[in-house]
Simulated assay, not measured.
Amino acid sequence: MVKIMDSWFTVNQLDDTTFAISEYGHWEKVHSYLLIGEEKAVLIDTGLGIDNIKRITDQLTNLPIIVLTTHVHWDHIGSHGEFKNIYVHKDEEDWLINGIKKLPIEQIRKDVSRDITIPTPKSVSPDTYKPFQGKPTGLLNDGDEIEIGNRKLTIFHTPGHSPGHISIFDNRCGYLFTGDLLYDKTPVYAFFPTTNPTELVQSLKKITDIPKVKKIFGGHNTIGLDASILQEVRNAVKELIEKDLVRFGTGIHKFEGFSVQF
């Protein structure tokens, strides 16, 4: 097992070639994931940007890294500028280049600075923090397959939390990386102007139809949810639709193992 001691990041080895890189010192408790193939590696999201995640990936692999962006929110693109090959769903290319729509920099800086429990690098100041902006290397579409050497990843467009949100399925391991579509402890949300409750529910239904899922890895909170939660998700989708709750303003809806907020 690989052990890395770091002042900001916590590294958990999920198997021989898969790592969760977490930022537990911040209230968001964000996870990025490094998947190592025989020819390339994939980094799913790059974290908050409070510290440089490349310092960690450099210790874990010498292979060229492709960054796959689950969605263009500031807490998932923080270290994008450290990598050459960045991919994003086509519906959020504009957000990556020109900035996140309807999210003022003042709000972002407020969210960056609150509830931090461990020291941050002196080079980072909430007063000057700015999310990454830049042109992606390439664009992703639903159904795209990415081969990194004896490891094939499938892209699923799962909008709702954001227009170009994606989930990523590792066909070799049965891992489903769900970004901010599905995680536990705090609500998955679709109550901002740039979210869409109907699309979120459709996306939740979509991932329940993916065969051979063994484990689910979300962008926040617990690392690794049992695939059995997908049955609860299927039931939740049915209930939300039948009770006419899939619309803005209906609040937080709690189910076994997860919740959603509209």
Score class of each variant (00 low, 15 high):
2 V>F: 11
2 V>K: 11
10 T>N: 07
15 D>M: 09
17 T>N: 14
17 T>G: 13
20 A>C: 02
21 I>F: 08
21 I>C: 08
23 E>C: 02
27 W>V: 08
30 V>L: 03
31 H>I: 01
31 H>Q: 07
40 K>E: 12
41 A>Q: 13
44 I>T: 10
45 D>C: 12
47 G>S: 00
49 G>W: 01
49 G>P: 07
52 N>T: 05
52 N>D: 14
54 K>M: 06
55 R>L: 09
57 T>V: 10
62 N>T: 15
62 N>I: 03
66 I>V: 15
70 T>V: 13
70 T>K: 02
71 H>L: 03
76 H>K: 14
79 S>R: 09
81 G>R: 14
83 F>Q: 13
88 V>S: 07
93 E>G: 08
94 D>Q: 13
102 K>W: 00
104 P>N: 05
107 Q>P: 01
107 Q>V: 09
109 R>F: 06
110 K>P: 00
120 T>Y: 07
122 K>N: 10
124 V>Q: 05
127 D>I: 06
128 T>W: 06
134 G>W: 07
135 K>M: 06
139 L>H: 06
144 D>Y: 15
149 G>A: 04
154 T>D: 03
163 P>D: 14
168 I>R: 05
168 I>V: 15
169 F>P: 01
171 N>Q: 13
172 R>T: 09
173 C>E: 04
174 G>S: 05
177 F>K: 08
182 L>K: 04
183 Y>T: 08
183 Y>R: 12
187 P>H: 02
190 A>L: 01
192 F>A: 14
195 T>S: 15
196 N>Y: 04
200 L>E: 01
200 L>K: 02
203 S>Q: 04
203 S>R: 01
204 L>A: 03
205 K>Y: 13
206 K>S: 12
207 I>A: 05
207 I>C: 14
208 T>P: 06
210 I>L: 03
211 P>A: 07
214 K>N: 08
215 K>L: 12
215 K>D: 06
217 F>E: 02
220 H>S: 13
220 H>Q: 09
222 T>C: 10
222 T>E: 14
226 D>M: 04
227 A>V: 00
227 A>P: 07
230 L>T: 02
230 L>Q: 08
232 E>F: 08
233 V>W: 06
234 R>Y: 01
234 R>E: 03
234 R>L: 05
237 V>N: 05
241 I>T: 06
249 G>L: 12
252 I>W: 03
257 G>R: 06
261 Q>I: 05
261 Q>Y: 13
